[in-house]
């Protein structure tokens, strides 16, 4: 097998990837980023349900809530660092604020995975935040 087609494909991949770098944040990029926040919030709600009903393992709840929290914080940092114009800038600011609220609820699960009442409350809030993020992603989308 000639290595030329592979090299061409790799070059194409690099060009396409490079095309996506730099410049102000696009609506589709923002929408993808908010989708990640919505997914983390929805998964946090599932995790919280298990903790609220005492149907899970505390170490799992704590470790997985930490992972989800790190995902959200990483996404928030990416959003904060990105430049944006017009409506994208407004939605981006909303997304950063939303990420902060999701992070707080995940922090509650991480800090007290055995607190059933706290988990129930975190679950409800995370579900609402996931819905909010989904709506924001739809608004922000191209």
């Amino acid at each position: 097998m000639s290595s030329r087609p592979v090299a061409l494909l790799a070059a194409l991949a690099l060009v396409v990837a490079a095309a996506g770098c730099g410049g102000p944040m696009r609506a589709d990029e923002l929408s993808r980023s908010i989708d990640t926040l919505a997914s983390a919030a929805a998964e946090g709600a599932l995790l919280a349900d298990g903790a609220a009903q005492d149907r899970t393992k505390a170490t799992f709840t704590r470790a997985h809530a930490r992972e989800l929290g790190e995902t959200v914080e990483h996404e928030a940092e990416k959003l904060s660092d990105a430049t944006a114009n017009g409506a994208v800038a407004t939605d981006k600011a909303d997304a950063v604020e939303l990420a902060d609220r999701i992070s707080q609820q995940l922090g509650q699960l991480q800090t007290a995975p055995d607190d059933r009442a706290g988990a129930r409350s975190a679950g409800d809030r995370l579900r609402a935040l996931a819905d909010e993020a989904t709506r924001l992603a739809e608004d922000a989308g191209p």
């Binding site: 997914s39 929805a42 599932l46 997985h64 992972e67 995902t71 996931a130």
Partner: peptide, 17 residues
């Protein structure tokens, strides 16, 4: 639930439900 799994923890969570 609108979750895109990003870790093995997400995969494990499936059977907890």
């Amino acid at each position: 639930a609108g979750v895109t799994p990003e870790s093995l923890g997400s995969v494990a969570l499936v059977t907890q439900v």
